[in-house]
């Protein structure tokens, strides 16, 4: 019994380590013994550089954590505006037929356009400042959040609305106590997808025109042909992405507790 549990534990720790180690070893071998080494740094070099950039500036002014925070601030600004606007548009489209009839054709026109395609237009419209970036990030998240919220608002159980009215709820009370809660899981799904597309949009925007942020770290690495710097940027993005996804899951657990069967 005890032995098998130790074996199990070893399995859950060892096997994942095998995956990572294998990748690092292959990487290291490729760099050391093939011509790829001319282009690619070793894992150790990347790690050293990563640690170095934690305390030393990349480019002129900012350290790696500062670049990350700058990108994060941009994402959160655009994402929050996109969420609020997306939820309002989605719910009003799903609940009010006339609004649906007015807004939907225009929305359908915007929907299939990939978020990054707005970058050039945003730059022409707003220059290369923060407004342009916020707009690009907004467009990245907005569409997903509207699509999901709209689906949720259309799927509200009409019988439950009837129940609420029969128990004496006003239209406003029925909205806040029935429509909104039953949309929450949909809204959340939309926000999760939206956050990752916003994160993508900020990188693209920073890569096209910016002087700071992780996207800039990567593109600056390309400009000075510094592969290690590019990899530092990519790893920073992965870590940040993981943290954001974990945060969203945590929020979902709290807000959608009523859907869980256990305990």
């Amino acid at each position: 019994m005890k032995k098998s549990s130790i074996k199990q534990k070893a399995g859950t720790i060892l096997l994942p380590a095998v995956g990572f180690v294998a990748i690092l070893v292959i990487w290291w071998l490729l760099v050391s013994f093939t011509r790829i080494g001319l282009l690619l740094p070793t894992p150790l070099e990347v790690l050293k550089r990563f640690i170095y950039f934690l305390g030393n500036p990349i480019g002129k002014a900012f350290t790696l954590p500062m670049h990350l925070l700058i990108s994060l601030r941009r994402v959160l600004t655009g994402f929050c505006i996109a969420s609020v606007a997306g939820i309002i548009v989605g719910i009003s489209m799903g609940r009010f037929k006339p609004i649906e009839a007015i807004v939907r054709p225009i929305f359908e026109l915007v929907r299939p356009i990939p978020g990054v395609a707005w970058i050039p237009l945003a730059i022409v419209w707003f220059g290369i400042g923060e407004t342009a970036k916020t707009f690009i990030i907004f467009m990245g998240g907005f569409v997903n959040i509207v699509v999901n919220t709209y689906a949720g608002a259309r799927h509200v159980d009409e019988r439950l609305m009837g129940v609420a009215y029969m128990l004496g709820a006003s239209k406003i009370q029925a909205f806040f106590r029935v429509v909104l809660p039953s949309c929450v899981p949909y809204i959340f799904a939309g926000m999760q997808v939206g956050l990752s597309t916003c994160w993508m949009a900020v990188l693209a925007a920073e890569m096209v025109s910016s002087f700071e942020g992780v996207g800039w770290v990567i593109i600056a690495g390309q400009d000075i042909n510094d592969m290690a710097q590019i990899f530092v940027g990519i790893i920073a993005i992965a870590v940040m992405g993981l943290l954001l996804a974990a945060f969203m899951r945590f929020m979902e657990r709290i807000l959608c507790r009523w859907r869980e069967r256990g305990a």
């Binding site: 859950t12 096997l15 994942p16 990572f20 990752s196 890569m207 990567i218 940027g233």
Partner: peptide
């Protein structure tokens, strides 16, 4: 068990970030 953790790490990297590489 072997691939999932590696994959979980790669997943959040937007492909856009790989363009310069």
């Amino acid at each position: 068990k072997i691939v999932r953790p590696v994959f979980d790490f790669i997943k959040p990297i937007p492909p856009i970030a790989l363009i310069p590489v």
